[in-house]
Every structure is written in structure tokens, then in C-alpha cells.
């Protein structure tokens, strides 16, 4: 009899309604919308429109790069990551929307991604065999993998004469990583993060870059690292 009473009590305890738990997070389709500007001016190719902090008057003839490993950190510490590598050509497609799959809903406080190919994937032949990826290869003789960035154009050296500049980044030692502290309340049927690249930021912080001093950096690890460091804040969330 005693066991019957204990058993009944245990049964009743087990069946006791539990306190209400918050509903599990829903999956939200996430996209990133990319825009370009130069200190507020729209991106216009092949035109000597822009001035950097070193007062170089310059144009942009090519801006190609990769975006990879988007990582979002939620306020409870949960981390969501997408290892897709996306090829970008700013002059061919100046307003792309990138689909990053689904993310659990919640408030996210940190957005990180590489402007280039993330280290484990930055090996010759690791990306799909497309003509675009072939054209971004970084020679094996110089370390292999892919160009993270090709930013090219011309700048005024005299009132009536220009020279070219080419900011090429490659190797894992010069891989720009963007970090944006934010508060994104990702909810609903879909969520879009609007990101704007301010091209002048490549030449500004912490290293002011003067094309008259250095106009071609490929293979120059020190200068590539400086430009890569400048790249940490080239993207900002900007509706």
C-alpha cells in the first residue's frame, strides 16, 4: 500500500504542468544588401571624382573581391555562421542582394565576415572552377589561393597626367576581416542587413594611404597588411 501511495504521488508530480517556456526561435531567411559609396558620393567607374585622405584625386576602374564566412553573434552568446564564399564585382553589379540561408530569430549584437576568402578555403583550386575564380587566383609562386581584393584605378600626378594604382590583397596574412557591433532584432518572414562599402575607408584608418608613395602593393606584405587592416571598417550597416 505504501508503495502504491508513493507511486501515485510520483506519477502526479511527473504530470504536474511545467512553467511556460519561451517558444523556440523561428528560422528567418537572411539576406545582405550591398551598396557602394565614396564618402557619400555614388560609385561611378572610370571618373576622377574622388579624393582620399592623402588628397589623391582618383578614379575606380575595377573593384572585385570576395565575401565569406558571415558570422552573427546573438545576445545570449549563440553564434550563427555561413561559410559560403561569394564573388563580388562592384562595377558589374553595384547593388547585389546576397542570400545567406536561414538564421534563428533573436537579437544579434555582432556581425563579422571576411572581405576575401576565409583561411581554410584560401587554397588554389578550392573554389569552383569558374572563369571569375580563375581570374582571381593568387599565383602559387606567391603563396597560392585567391586575390581577396582587386581595387584598381588611376590618380592625378599632375594636373594633366595620371598614373595607375592597384591595391591587390592576397594570402592569409593580409585578409581583411570586418567586425560590426550592432543590435539586429532578426524576426519575421525575412530579414535584410543593408551594408555599404565606403571605398575611401580602404585608404584612411589607421593608415593614411598615399598613391604617390605606393601605388602597387601585390607581394608587399607590409603594405598589404596595412590595407587589410584599413579594411576592417570599410563596411557599415546603413539603411
Amino acid at each position: 500500500m505504501r508503495y502504491a501511495v508513493i507511486g501515485t504521488l510520483l506519477f502526479l508530480w511527473a504530470c504536474k504542468p511545467k512553467p511556460a517556456e519561451p517558444p523556440p526561435p523561428t528560422q528567418v531567411p537572411l539576406t545582405v544588401q550591398i551598396r557602394y559609396e565614396v564618402d557619400g558620393q555614388p560609385l561611378q567607374p572610370d571618373t576622377l571624382l574622388y579624393t582620399n585622405d592623402a588628397e589623391n584625386r582618383y578614379s575606380i576602374t575595377k573593384l572585385r573581391y570576395y565575401l565569406s564566412r558571415f558570422t552573427l553573434t546573438r545576445n545570449d552568446g549563440f553564434q550563427w555562421r555561413n561559410d559560403t564564399v561569394i564573388y563580388m564585382d562592384a562595377l558589374q553589379n553595384p547593388n547585389p542582394t546576397l542570400s545567406l540561408g536561414e538564421i534563428p530569430s533573436g537579437t544579434y549584437v555582432k556581425l563579422e565576415f571576411y572581405i576575401g576568402v576565409y583561411p581554410e578555403r584560401n587554397k588554389t583550386g578550392a573554389l569552383p572552377n569558374t572563369v571569375e575564380n580563375m581570374n582571381m587566383q593568387w599565383p602559387d609562386a606567391m603563396g597560392g589561393g585567391y586575390h581577396h581584393l582587386k581595387l584598381e584605378g588611376r590618380y592625378l600626378v599632375k594636373p594633366d597626367s595620371t598614373a595607375g594604382y592597384a591595391m591587390h590583397l592576397g594570402t592569409n596574412a593580409a585578409l581583411p576581416q570586418a567586425l560590426i557591433r550592432t543590435s539586429l532584432n532578426i524576426q519575421g518572414d525575412a530579414f535584410t542587413i543593408p551594408l555599404t562599402m565606403n571605398i575611401n575607408e580602404w585608404f584612411r584608418n589607421p593608415y593614411v594611404y598615399d598613391f604617390n608613395t605606393k601605388s602597387y602593393i601585390m607581394g608587399d606584405t607590409l603594405h598589404m597588411q596595412q590595407i587589410a587592416e584599413n579594411g576592417a571598417d570599410v563596411f557599415q550597416i546603413k539603411p
Binding site: 600626378v157 595620371t162 592597384a166 601605388s215
Partner: peptide
């Protein structure tokens, strides 16, 4: 030969 449309890749350092 230099010209305003010379490919930037051809402008090596020190011009």
C-alpha cells in the same frame, strides 16, 4: 607608352 587609359596593372611603383 603612357596614356590616360593605360591599364593600372602596368603602372608599377615609382610610376
Amino acid at each position: 607608352k603612357a596614356s590616360p587609359t593605360l591599364d593600372p596593372i602596368m603602372s608599377h611603383n615609382n610610376r
